[in-house]
Amino acid sequence: MKIDLEEENLKGSVLGLVMALLEIIQKMLEHQAIRRMEGQSINDEQIERLGKALLRLRETIDKIKEEQGIADVVNSIHKQLDSLVDGSLVSYK
């Protein structure tokens, strides 16, 4: 499984990879939170606390991406990961 990272900008590439993985984790946590909301297994106060934490995480990730100038690197990694998943699904069929 190969993901292309730029050798000339290793710090940016590694940070980009970390941010991409963080975004995936954040999406998974949001997905789980939404499932609990739909299943009504969390109350309004919990929704508010969970939402605030996820919102803060989202804002922090966006801020780091902007400050480090790695938004394009992160997008590129997401695209590569999407291609890997698509490829695996095709092979599975």
């Binding site: 949001e30 997905h31 909301m37 508010e48 606390r49 969970l50 605030k52 934490a53």
Partner: peptide
């Protein structure tokens, strides 16, 4: 209607 945290989660739920 909601406060910021809940509004964010309802926004994500709406998008989904």
């Amino acid at each position: 209607d909601k406060q910021s945290g809940a509004a964010y989660l309802y926004e994500q739920r709406f998008k989904k």
